[in-house]
Structure formats: C-alpha cells, structure tokens
C-alpha cells in the first residue's frame, strides 16, 4: 500500500514539474518567436492556462499527502499539550478537508461533463475543452485519494520512506 502511495506521488510530482517547466518554456519560446522571428505560437495564451491547471492539481496530491497546505499554527504549541483534544481536532480538520476537496473533485468532474455537453472548445488551442477538464478531474480525485492515504497512514501509524516528507515545507 505504501508503495502504491509512493508511486502515485512520483507520478503526480513528475506531471507537476513537467507542466511547470513547460509553462516557462512555452512563454519563453512564444515571446522569443514573436520578437525575433515574427512567429509566435498562436495558442500559447490558452496552453499556459491548461498547463497551470495540470500543474496545480497534479501537485495537489503531494500537498494533501504531506499536509502542505498553509494553515495558522498560532496555537500549535498549546494543542500539543492537550493530546486528547489535539487528536479530535486533527480528525475534525481532516474531515473538513476531505469534504472540501471531495466536493472539488466531484464538481470538476461535473464541470467537465457540462463543458462536453455544451460542445465547448478553445479559441485557438485545437482540442475540446472537456479533455483537459477531465484530466484535471482525474488529478483532483488522485489528490483526494492522497488525502485518504494520509488519514490511513496516520491511523495505522505507518510512515512513508525517509525523504518523502520533504514536501511538507512550503516555499
């Protein structure tokens, strides 16, 4: 099980990294093409948007798995002194997050369906809009699974291999 969790981590991390690098490169090539050769990539504008979406929801898996979201830890020290309360608090927070990101995944899926029913396309990018939307939905569900995985790891007291926790840092 932990191997599967790690494997998905590797996969989503790669997608996030690749799409992020592509965003920079597409912008660079588009501008260089336009300025130097009068030959911009017509679809850069919309492609950047799609890449941003893929990068975000691909990266969400690791963020869920390693509690990478930004939160207010003002009372953290105090909570640590009340372990019983802290366990209940942790479970409550976990549920709130599960509810929110579950709804996000479900309604991105619904949004992809709506877009497909509408027959929506992009202005310049030669692909139907529901295609990247469904990709976002799949990644969002994976991220949701990452959240469930974190719950399972916490409850069973297991941990992922050393080094995997690096993502807990934000910034």
């Amino acid at each position: 099980m932990t191997a599967l969790i790690r494997m998905v981590r590797g996969l989503t991390d790669r997608i996030a990294m690749a799409t992020l690098m592509l965003m920079a490169l597409v912008t660079f090539v588009d501008v260089a093409g336009r300025v130097l050769f009068n030959e911009p990539l017509g679809f850069a504008y919309e492609m950047i948007g799609v890449l941003l979406g893929l990068a975000t929801y691909a990266g969400l898996y690791a963020t869920q798995l390693h509690r990478g979201h930004i939160a207010i830890d003002l009372l953290e020290d105090r909570y640590r002194r009340w372990p019983r309360f802290d366990a209940v608090r942790g479970a409550l927070v976990w549920l709130v997050e599960a509810l929110f990101w579950g709804l996000v995944a479900a309604w991105i899926t619904r949004q992809a369906g709506t877009s497909m029913a509408y027959g929506e396309t992009f202005l310049f990018l030669p692909v139907a809009k529901h295609v990247p939307l469904y990709a976002l939905a799949v990644l969002a569900w994976l991220a949701f699974a990452g959240h469930l995985a974190r719950g399972w790891l916490t409850v069973t007291g297991r941990s992922l291999a050393p080094g995997a926790g690096k993502a807990e840092q934000v910034g």
Binding site: A16, L20, A55, T56, G59, G68, V170, G171
Partner: peptide, 11 residues
Amino acid sequence: ALTDAAHTTVA
C-alpha cells in the same frame, strides 16, 4: 527548484 515551486504554487 521545480518541486519547490510546484508546492508553493499549489498552496
């Protein structure tokens, strides 16, 4: 750098 940037972006 990409991993770092990805996590900040997601957050």
